[in-house]
Design a binder for these strands. Sequence first.
RNA 1: GUGGGGAUAGCGAAGUGGUCAAACGCGACCGACUCAAGAUCGGUUCCUUUCGGUUCAAGGGUUCGAAUCCCUUUCCCCACACCA
Length: 939
Amino acid sequence: MNDEHPSLRTEHWHRVWEEKGLFLNNPDERTKFFVNFPFPYVNGYPHLGHLFSFMRCDVMARYKRLKGFNVLFSQGFHATGQPIVAAAQLVKDRDEKQIALLLQIGIPESDIPLFENPEHWISFFSKAWKEDLKKAGASIDWRRSFITTDINPPFDKFVRWQYNKLQEKGYIVKGSHPVVWCPKAKQPIGDHDRKEGEGVTPEEVTLVKFTDSKGRVYPAMTFRPETVFGVSNMWINPEGEYVEVEVLDQKRKQIWIVSKDCVYSLEMQHFSPKELSSLKGKELLDEELINPVTHDKVPVLPASFVDMSNGTGVVMSVPAHAPYDYVALRDLKKELPIIALIKVSGYGKIPAKDIVERMGIKDQLDPKLKEATKELYKKEHHTGIITEQIKEFEGKSVSEAKEALITQFKEKGFATSYYTLTQPVISRQNARAVVALVDNQYFLNYSNPEWKKLAHECVDKMRFYPEQTRQNYHYTIDWLKDWACARDKGIGTRLPWDEAWLIESLSDSTIYMAYYTIAHYLQNPDHYNIKIEKIGDSFFTYVFLGEGKPSVVAKESGISEDLLQSIREEFLYWYEGGYDFRSSGKDLIQNHLTFSLFHHTALFPKEHWPSGISVNGYILLNNEKMSKSKGNFITFREAIEQYGVDASRFAMAFASDVTLDDANFDTTLALGFNGKLAAMMEFAKDQYGKGREEYKRIDSWFDYVLDQTIDACDKHYNNSETRSAMQVAYFDLSNHLKWYTKRTGGSYNKEVISRCILTQALLLAPVLAHTAEELFELLGQNCLASQAGWPTKKGEALDWMTEREQFISVDLVSRINKVKEMKNLEKISSLTIVQAPKLKFELFDAIKFLLEEKKDFKEILMHLNEKFPEEKKFIAKFLPKVFKEGITNYIKEEEEREILESLLAFLEREYSCKIVLKTASEFGEASTAIPAQPAIVVE
RNA sequence: GUGGGGAUAGCGAAGUGGUCAAACGCGACCGACUCAAGAUCGGUUCCUUUCGGUUCAAGGGUUCGAAUCCCUUUCCCCACACCA
């Protein structure tokens, strides 16, 4: 508990909520709303970043409850995968870094050995999460909480069921896939295990097979197989180490000539190379090779630019389109035929020649060559058109021809596929990585166009917070290729049909939200007399898909038909439209969230597809990135302890609206907010139920403001715009209250001020959950704020005089203050307010009338000038302003008089001086006053 | 490279054609309270000072009127995978 704010009995309210079972929801006649937060991976304490996304859920859940929805909100935990196992192993190995990390987060030294066991990590941190969420006031149905992996049999069975279904429906395929592979560690290396080359991925290229007189194959690696029609010669590095290898390509034995370094790569990509002999590049220079496509004979020439460590060491030369090739030939002074295949606008017949000459490239060592190559490739790929040299594709675009030609070449055995890395990747073990093909992998078939189509359809129907993220999902769906969904290391659920494999962690987390709807049955089986060991696929198929005969399923699962029926109904109730609001960090769009959509479309009928996803940016702490090294990393529990629960919740809610930009947790705000909370409660206690009976214009204005606030706040919460909701319900409303206080001199109308206090408490209740409860108790309300329902509006429109009075009073005060400051007055001794001359009122009347009647600017101008010749100057300046926006200053002289008179008491109080009201004629001098903006004389 | 998002006063951040010199919050300054500090409360915070002037990355355009619409330029951020 926070010293600054002893009046917030957070634990008391947590107990009250729990005792009343406030957040334990069961189906009823209300409309449901399903909120969820992605289950966190339990290898550490929750930190501020988690709290931020989580708060959006909790606020949404609490808001929807106030609005009368039946809200489902629970929280599971995730342990699938390798990190926990790896961390436990590190502890076992007495790894200093890992142990230091645990000590740093406050684990006592004596407990460290416990963390040698992965299960301890899981139980320890899932417990910590639960505690912290409770401390934060999370409105969660804990009956439905669960953890993943086979340590939780019912969930394990649920995931198995899911995979059996996917398999049955053909969404799982077997195949191989390319990975970045470390030859030393003999395993794939992700970005985190790289010393160099982060973000580099395997790229598919084509090996075009040139042959020599002995029938040996020279596989030339290229990204542009279509240019094979324009090959003038081949390049070999004369100093390079080459080998003759026997390989197996497309099930046929062949003899290949490749660089020595290439052999390992070939092996990892299943070409089964057998080294026969080694040779120097020089020895190959006399050869003439046959172009497999054109059957032309081309010479082998030396080139030092041929990279021996990447690719095959054999390069085909296309001087018309490759600046390197063009320059190298020029350097050698060889006259060879140059065949142009691609027309590009802005270039001559031989584009490579053009660009080389334009950039003034001297020789093949010129660094500008790289740039020239890049520019030309890009240009040709995007805008190039095939010439008559390739008859079949004449006039077609390069990208189109390329696709078709690759397939054709492969079919005819002219070429084969190969993977390469476009930039060097160095592993932590200091080895240069290659591309390996991993075989016999199980894949989720995300490349399946039918499946993609369904996913797109799902995205089209959903609501996204913020809306702009919708495109990211469409993009991701198109971009996703098959996903390897099984691992041989770590923990999780085993593939039901091949138990050697574990389901990968992203792949087991796709439709588990549906599990929440029925989790309480399976996670508390004794309570429902359920025997988990009897539960099998038929149970889930019945509950989630409604397939199967209830009597049969009941028998198989050992669950009574009645219970089975209610479980099925509970799922149908909560999962109509899937989940309504899922909030997470934006980094999950590319994987988890899109996976979730894919799987829903694969397994469920449309009525259970998800309805809403919200994502947010990262959280900054005082506008700085949180990081452990900077020492500004704070956990959930630290924040709550330091700033108090509701102050933290407020700072979180105020950290950002729905946007992808970074949010900011402002500790000054959080710290300072406790005082504000105390003041708010103090005020409520002092003022609630007190005040005068008389209902004045200013009261009706404030009633109107309250209504406006309720509407605005409603809209913001509904859009998950927590920052704006706080802005409106706390800051803006507080400022309006200040004005109301000023205008009334603290003599409030009883009804109005009481309504204000309760309304503000309720509007803030989704965020300031504990404060709202305190207030409700303090004010003797006979229900909990959490259950009170959304505040009701009075529903009266702002009447004309009230609105005018508001306009005039605000304007007067600001002008008086300005003058007071300008004249450097300590205190005002006399204040004279002068109404505008009669003529001005008449003029405004005329303007108003004309604006309503006529639409033409010129016409109005002429009319007015005619009628008020002495006001020509004023009209010229004033009219354009009011022409389109209407006349805001309009008021009748006697109305203004009445309003000014009614404001006298307020102004006298405000400035403690005598105030005189005068008409223009009484005052005498010409004044700047216009209607609704009387002149002021301050002394 | 591909795709997405930005640039607003000391800072953060609203604002998408007209009550916009621009909400609100922080910070700063002044004042009240206090022995004092903190907290709290009131006020000020582009320049001028009831007028008016110059602003919303830079330049150009559309319009009676632009922070807001269009074009160009510059700069910044995020994602790009086999993993939580």
